[in-house]
């Protein structure tokens, strides 16, 4: 009974689990170590913007963590993040509380075109509003897309699947 359940449902259950893991939106997450740090002077508040992408390409998810200082946290600041493009384009970032520290804000931004973009951070709280920003150079989109990269990277799994099938046949031929 147990054997039947596990051997029949193991692979679909694992596929569901992987889907679950990949479905978790990484918008509020970021790499372990920031690549750059920018001080922010936002009117009555101050803080830091941590950039987790060392190189930014057009189409990449840009991860910025906004860390308000203690005063700004007490004032309950809310952030807005926008990217101002060289041709006048404006893109608003998706914001979420940081997964590791709810007092910080994680911004997720996709810039579609190369060029020098200005990242503008606006903080609004009980003691007023203030803005600051920093310049972000964006490279052209890479020739090898993320999808193509993953397709190449996971291709050895075909060999693993073939090997697993061979071993399963061997296992069935063993009478224990």
């Amino acid at each position: 009974m147990i054997k039947r359940i596990v051997s029949h449902w193991a692979i679909p259950a694992m596929a569901a689990l992987f889907w679950l893991l990949s479905a978790g939106p990484p918008a509020a997450a970021h790499n372990a170590f920031p690549a750059r740090e920018y001080p922010l002077h936002l009117g009555p508040y101050s803080g830091r913007a941590l950039l987790f992408n060392e190189k930014v390409n057009a189409g990449d998810h840009i991860q910025i963590l906004l860390v308000p200082d203690a005063l700004a946290k007490r004032a309950g600041v809310q952030f807005q993040v926008r990217a101002l493009g060289p041709a006048g384009a404006t893109i608003a970032a998706g914001l979420a509380p940081d997964e590791n520290d709810r007092g910080n804000t994680a911004a997720d931004l996709v810039i579609p075109a190369q060029g020098a973009w200005q990242i503008q951070v606006t903080a609004t709280g009980r003691t007023g509003t203030g803005s600051d920003g920093f310049l972000l150079p964006v490279n052209p989109a890479p020739a090898l897309s993320q999808w193509a990269g993953w397709a190449i990277a996971l291709s050895p799994l075909l060999g693993v699947a073939w090997f697993a099938l061979q071993q399963r046949r061997l296992l069935r031929s063993v009478e224990f």
Partner: peptide
């Protein structure tokens, strides 16, 4: 190549 495209991190 990936590191050159996306950086060291």
């Amino acid at each position: 190549d990936w590191h050159e495209l996306y950086g060291i991190d």
